[in-house]
Design a protein around this nucleic acid. Structure first.
Length: 82
DNA sequence: GTTGAGCGTT
């Protein structure tokens, strides 16, 4: 499973996000999506944790939490292909 | 400022 993280501060980096999620388990992958044209962050990211239990915990703990001045939106990600 | 890439072809 992959976690979607939205409403991120534009100051947040992929590494920042990984550190926050590491608090609730092993972060296998952290991806901060940026605008391909401008290179600026789009304000959302995807996280892969070591286990579903860790992911569920991270979602439960971080959804709605304030981080870097923004209230995070955290939930299960959709598959990239629709 | 809410769902991921690529841009020499989706």
């Amino acid at each position: 499973m992959t976690i979607y993280v939205g409403n991120l501060s534009y100051d947040a980096t992929q590494n920042d996000i990984q550190e926050v999620f590491s608090e609730y388990g092993t972060v296998k992958k952290a991806h901060l999506s940026t605008d391909r044209e401008t290179g600026r962050p789009r304000g959302f990211a995807f996280i892969d944790m070591g286990s579903d239990a860790e992911e569920e915990k991270a979602i439960a703990e971080l959804d709605g939490a304030e981080w870097m001045g923004r209230t995070l939106k955290v939930n299960k990600a959709r598959p990239r292909e629709n």
